[in-house]
Design a protein around this nucleic acid. Structure first.
Lengths: 339, 339
DNA sequence: TTGTAGGCGTTATCAC
DNA sequence: GTGATAACGCCTACAA
């Protein structure tokens, strides 16, 4: 079992031409029974497989999907990746993953690299940096060149392409309603800045709408905007202490768990004194104590759907492009102990 | 901004040969100042970038690293991925990630796919299925063909290649010692079956050694082997109730958190009644309450080192291959509330 | 200063 | 039934 074998080498071995070998391996009736058998056996023995790169060059397609994500350490994105990978594998595609690390620059570089022939299409979620910058030229450029892009979760209206998102607004609305149904009135939200579109803005709006619909007044001091994961939660603790809060809707798992901690510190019981509901049904939610009631985003489904859309488009033979779709994956509430 | 432009197209545009264009773009002094400028400007305008696939075919290298991991939803593996990605990007490589989903079959298929020209080398961790089967022919084959492989974390002595592992034995030893130092005597271990080499066997051995060295008798009923993540923890709870345990060394974050839950259920306080120390310093550890004292595996460092080793080998120009190395990343104990 | 030719591995078309 | 040729996009040694 030595180096990779090529058609050329096989052809030399049998003193035939390369094309004969190629045809023989494809079981072409052009080639004599005998030669075919001979070559096929030899190939199998030497474990011949056509070189992917050569095929890519010839066919002008790589069978690779380019994935550009802000990070993959948190459950939501890693489960998206899992979903993408499942669909891709099933349909004969590989997955090249690049991490933008939440920065605009790395997002651009990654996409330019990959767009250069390495992949057939993109699945991507915007980095924080890109959302902040509001600059989407790199994505538009790729699309203009005829490379399909599917945006997931963190998307923008400014780019015209297929999208798979969750209904952040409704997810938040449902979550807050759930709390209201438990008889909670003083509901706080731990959220993110507005430029974090879906996570920050939309969920906050869902929260407000739910309160309004229930005839509960919106109290701005119960809207806490946190910038990142190592933020000061003292403001939150203060709120709790002043018993200004009887429930918390947290926009991430992490915030939710922190809220529980703060409550415990303040001697408050969850869910009786302070109920907590989070977003993202990840490992944290399952393993925290009390375990978290959360809004599940079904990351794996998002990934799977996105890959499915992308591959459909790639393999669409008809000459007219189907219109862009926007799929909305419904969130569901997973009831556990915290609310 | 239309379709991707090629050397050929540029050459037509200026009525010169392809090689002239190629040289001009490389700023070769062979080409006249004027032609160079002209072509370079045109290329920049049209955002010319050489096609990666063509380069790969020509250079017989792809600048892609193939990563085969059992899963990436848990923090340890996703942080490894992050580390790999960082190093790869820095050195101009892309990362193709495939998930074996803990099965032997998918591991084999993935590696065969990638080995077919898509990548220059592998970084991989064995799936549970492969460890159970004890069949490593696919890895040996790849290596025999001259494709370098770096095994990480879940490795086997049967394959000769570069390896990056943590010192599971010592990590466990240290963890248990830490508990002993706190005056704990009845220390249980929540572990995995022996075929899970590093996670199961080695850590259990470290546990035993620590007890032995401290002159504490090993009590088999305190060694609980759990098969997977949705196991019955009743056995554990029973142990707690019979007050046969005053500390737990858990071989995963998840087990650790479950142990805390069981303790709480039994009305025992952590860390006073039952101290708990886990393995893997992930998100769960940080956010659980009480937060977990854990053995940090430094996944990102493992990934970074592995990628570094692999790329070094790929770019090693000298004709003799350097000997295989086995890097051992030291674990450290991250002290928090649970012990 | 510019161009030609060959090659990377494969396949498809067409010729013998 | 088999083989030569061109093409995918790029690079480079060698002509002209």
């Amino acid at each position: 079992m030595r180096k990779k074998i090529t058609l050329k080498e096989i052809s030399k071995r049998f003193n035939v031409s390369i094309s004969t070998v190629s045809k023989a391996l494809k079981d072409s009736p052009e080639i004599s029974e005998r030669t075919r058998k001979l070559i096929q056996e030899f190939a199998k023995e030497h474990n011949y497989k056509p070189n992917n790169i050569a095929l890519s060059l010839k066919n002008q397609k790589t069978k690779n999907l380019g994935i550009v994500l802000p990070e993959i350490q948190h459950f939501f994105f890693s489960s998206i990746t899992t979903g993408i990978e499942k669909c891709a594998t099933k349909r004969g595609y590989n997955v090249i993953i690049c991490i933008s690390n939440e920065t605009f620059e790395k997002e651009v570089i990654n996409m330019e690299m990959l767009a250069n022939g390495s992949i057939d299409g993109f699945i991507m979620a915007l980095s924080q940096g890109t959302q902040k910058a509001g600059d989407f030229h790199h994505i538009k450029e790729v699309i203009n060149r005829g490379m399909p892009v599917v945006m997931i979760d963190r998307v923008t209206e400014e780019v015209d392409c297929d999208k798979v998102i969750i209904d952040d607004f409704k997810g938040a609305y449902d979550a807050v309603n759930y709390l209201i149904d438990q008889g909670k009135k003083k509901i706080a939200i731990l959220t993110m800045p507005d430029y974090m579109g879906s996570v920050g803005k939309l969920r906050t709006e869902g929260y407000k709408k739910a309160l309004r619909d229930a005839g509960i007044e919106i109290d701005e001091k119960r809207i806490v905007k946190l910038d990142n994961f190592y933020n000061d939660f003292e403001a939150v603790e203060a709120l709790f202490k002043e018993s200004e809060v009887d429930a918390v809707f947290a926009v991430t798992e992490f915030f939710a768990v922190q809220a529980i901690k703060m409550a415990q510190k303040s001697g408050l019981k969850t869910p009786d004194d302070i109920a907590v509901i989070g977003f993202t049904d990840g490992i944290i939610s399952k393993s925290s104590s009390p375990s978290l009631t959360t809004v599940s985003q079904h990351g794996e489904e998002i990934g799977y759907r996105a890959a499915s859309l992308l591959i459909d488009r790639l393999e669409n033979e008809s000459d007219e492009e189907p219109p862009y779709t926007k799929e909305i994956i419904q969130t569901t509430i997973v009831k556990r102990e915290s609310a």
